[in-house]
Design a protein around this nucleic acid. Structure first.
Lengths: 174, 174
DNA sequence: AATAGCATGTAAGAAGTTACATGATTTC
DNA sequence: GAAATCATGTAACTTCTTACATGCTATT
């Protein structure tokens, strides 16, 4: 369901798009909330077309490109899902699972890894901040901002835990 | 892989545990980073036992309970994964996907939903904060704190977007 | 004696990943 | 003309969810 909803949302946001275009969106800010590979997206779009949630126009040009557009039915489906569905609140993030368990290692091992994670998230914060500023639509700015807040939280956590572990290791030595 | 790693981590953290115990952990703070149902956990533990990553003791009592303990091999596997693996940074969160797309709705529809989301995350912030305070181990405190920071980010985002939409709607009316 | 919680399992199906497969066009 | 990028697809496999299935124990 989530993939279908994500695709409907992207089609509203970005207008008519090919499977290729939609695949690229999952590599940008959307990957902060959901992601999918082209091998899952292409069949899903065909299924949505069969259900009448989207329509497709096949380009006659040399490149065999199909452009999908959301239908009124698709819009209704998306709206109902947003309004009526109690979303599943579980999160799946391998990177957070790793963060979560990094403190299991000895300080000599965990500290550089935690500092490296903080740096990774700092880069993402910077990138998303400038992305947010360059966005012309409110929606895109909101979406980039969600990424900024999420990445900031992870950066802050990694820094806080590294500092705490460092302080405790110093106390022990003293 | 992630489920296996999560189970190994929980077995280090919590000590010898049954599949039932581990299933409950995925309903607590662990669900902020990964989750799994018992129907996936039981077979995975059997597989890990066959691989020598864990050992099992079957209780002779009336309740047919199997207690799993991590082996040295399992500890090594976990350590190597934490140190050597570049984790997948994709996130899957249906709740965030929904947040992400809520601004697609008209203000009259999105505002109450955004305020409700902010309230949901506020409750989680409060719960995790008191959980963090009550935790005796550093690791558990760190883990609860990761939840606090993540939930705070979502609460702040929902509030920021709701305020922004409200302000813009008021400007338009004026 | 009924209800809630402990405790484990399997089977079918849906969702997601990896690898294979093809071919056109643009840029250098 | 080589490399990067556009563009779509399928097959095999792994992972995850939902539903079914069972039976004990503690509480009220």
């Amino acid at each position: 369901m989530s993939l279908r909803i994500a695709l409907l949302g992207l089609l509203v946001e970005a207008g008519p798009s090919s499977g290729y275009d939609l695949t690229k969106h999952f590599g940008l800010s959307t990957s902060n909330v959901w992601s999918a590979k082209h091998s899952q997206i292409y069949p899903e779009l065909r299924k949505m077309e069969a259900d009448g949630a989207v329509t497709a126009v096949e380009e006659s040009g040399a490149r065999n490109k199909r452009t999908y557009e959301i239908t009124d039915g698709g819009r209704g489906e998306l709206r109902r899902w947003l309004i009526e569905t109690d979303p599943n609140r579980d999160v799946r993030s391998e990177a957070c699972l790793r963060l979560f368990m990094l403190p299991l290692l000895d300080p000599e091992e965990s500290l550089p890894l935690l500092r490296a994670e903080a740096a990774v998230y700092q880069v993402r914060v910077n990138r998303l901040k400038s992305l947010a500023e360059s966005m012309d639509s409110d929606l895109n700015r909101y979406q980039a901002t969600l990424g900024v807040l999420n990445m900031t939280a992870l950066r802050d956590w990694a820094t806080y835990v590294a500092d705490d572990i460092e302080r405790k290791a110093a106390e022990k030595r003293a």
